[in-house]
Amino acid sequence: MEVVTLDEAGKMQLLELWKPVLSLSKANTLEANLGSCHEWFKVVDEENIRAIFEIRRVPLNGARYIKSMLLDFAPDLDINPEGQSFKEASETLKYAIEVLGYIFSHLLSNDTKCFKIHNEHSMVRMFFFSFAEYLAKRYPEEYDVAFYGNWLEITAKK
């Protein structure tokens, strides 16, 4: 698995792959999001794009942090305990968790070893609250974690 910058050609290629399987509204939203002036990255595994995410870099007192992040798993990701074998659904879920972990690890790998994420979606906030709680309680020596309002801020100490 690797994180690769999604350049303009890559965005066009991605839209050609993904748009045909999406509803018109989702395809239009994806195209509009990719058209933003911010950096986009793709998570690639065995030449397949598994997810894409956006990073908005903001300077702050010399450091840089991520103001907001859009993230989309690939349309072919399916976790369906009713339509798949339990084992298959479980393996796909594990894979999705690994992709998420890979993305967040990538975000912490910058020079400042810090990232902030602003997100206004209530469901994503719920996720980040638990994410922050886990690191703060279990790894206080390794991570500084702050969760306030719509913001999550994580700093790797090592």
Binding site: I79, L100, G101, F104, M126, Y134, Y139
Partner: peptide
């Protein structure tokens, strides 16, 4: 990998509280 652990924990808690992925 604590970040992977946090990702698993957070999704698990999300589902435990009655939400769908």
């Amino acid at each position: 990998n604590p970040i992977l652990g946090a990702s698993f924990y957070a999704l698990n808690e999300f589902v435990k509280t009655g939400n769908e992925l």
